[in-house]
């Protein structure tokens, strides 16, 4: 605490009260409850912890959650870049409304998203019926999980790339074109290198969000053990069987992986800021 409080001289009052309350509330709501998960696992022996988090059904859920989150984030990286480009560079009717609706996955409760996607992609749904006729089943298969995770990760890449494209001068592209580059070369050599850090940041955020997602997935997944059961559902199932230490062990594995991702995101943003700062100098 004393290191935190070593402030420089300031004429403004309220530092100790504001920081004190911030730390108190942070500990009370976030840090102490989160530490409970780690302390609970210390009650387990290493063998039983390891046996719980590497059980075949749990391993299958990691593969599914991780794989589908990665795929969904990749889809969103590509299409998110496209949507950001279209929203920044072109004019078309309804653009303002569409721009606002991109944030829908942030505002729409996940349970609502879950039942809506299930209704649309079920075999008798608006999009599920034609897909089913083409031999593709979406709802109640791993593909349905992919759809739900793509939905909840949709805004991230759009919102990280948009400001970068807005800041990018059109002169840069015009210069490239007047020097003889075609549209494809301009994209690969000029635009893509500029937006890549933002795309990677958005991709990582979407990936991190997808890893922990629960509400939108469980309705559309079908939740078959070994096939379409995500890791958060494993935790719920263990809780319903009053297996608190088992649930906590799996939760700790998830927590550690999301903290690692959080660290990667912070490092990425630091790297991007430094790169941008150097370019400005």
């Amino acid at each position: 605490m004393t290191t935190l409080a070593s402030r420089r001289h300031s004429v403004l009052p309220g530092f100790h009260l504001a920081l004190g309350y911030t730390l108190f509330y942070l500990c009370l709501i976030v840090l102490i409850p989160l530490s409970a998960a780690f302390i609970k696992t210390f009650g387990l022996t290493w063998e039983s912890f390891w046996a719980t988090v590497t059980a075949p059904r749990v391993l299958a859920s990691y593969r599914l959650t991780f794989g589908m989150s990665l795929l969904a984030a990749l889809i969103n990286a590509g299409f998110g870049l496209l949507v950001a480009w279209v929203l920044v560079r072109y004019r078309f009717p309804g653009k303002r409304v569409i721009d606002s609706l991109v944030d829908l996955p942030f505002a729409l409760p996940t349970a609502v998203a879950g039942i809506a996607l299930t209704a649309v992609y079920a075999t008798n749904g608006w999009l599920g019926a034609p897909l089913n006729a083409a031999g593709i089943k979406v709802a109640f298969t791993p593909l349905g999980i992919l759809v739900a995770l793509t939905f909840i990760g949709l805004p991230f890449v759009v919102r990280t790339v948009q400001p970068v494209l807005e800041d990018m001068e059109a002169e840069l592209e015009e210069a490239a074109q007047s020097l003889g580059a075609n549209a494809w070369q301009t994209f690969w050599r000029v635009i893509l290198p500029t937006v890549t850090p933002a795309v990677i940041t958005g991709f990582t955020l979407a990936f991190a969000r997808a890893l922990g997602e629960y509400g939108s997935v469980i309705f559309i997944a079908g939740n078959m053990p070994m096939i379409s059961e995500i890791t958060p559902l494993i935790i719920i199932t263990k809780l319903e069987q009053y297996d608190y230490s088992g649930a906590t062990a799996v939760a700790v594995v998830m927590l550690v992986s999301s903290f690692v991702l959080l660290f990667v995101i912070n490092a990425l943003q630091w790297w991007v800021r430094r790169r941008r700062g150097e370019e400005r100098l």
């Binding site: 290191t3 935190l4 409080a5 070593s6 402030r7 420089r8 300031s10 403004l12 530092f15 920081l19 911030t22 730390l23 942070l26 976030v30 840090l31 409850p33 989160l34 409970a36 998960a37 996940t110 991190a208 890893l211 922990g212 997602e213 629960y214 509400g215 958060p232 935790i235 719920i236 809780l239 649930a247 906590t248 939760a251 998830m254 927590l255 999301s258 903290f259 991702l261 959080l262 912070n266």
Partner: peptide
């Protein structure tokens, strides 16, 4: 409004609930 050590760590900790799965948020 103030300078102190550990500021970026504090900002990261404030963001922590966003990177925790909702299921785990209930579990704790």
């Amino acid at each position: 409004k103030f300078d102190f050590r550990g500021k970026s760590l504090l900002i990261t900790l404030i963001d922590l609930p966003f990177s925790v799965s909702p299921v785990i948020s209930g579990l704790i």
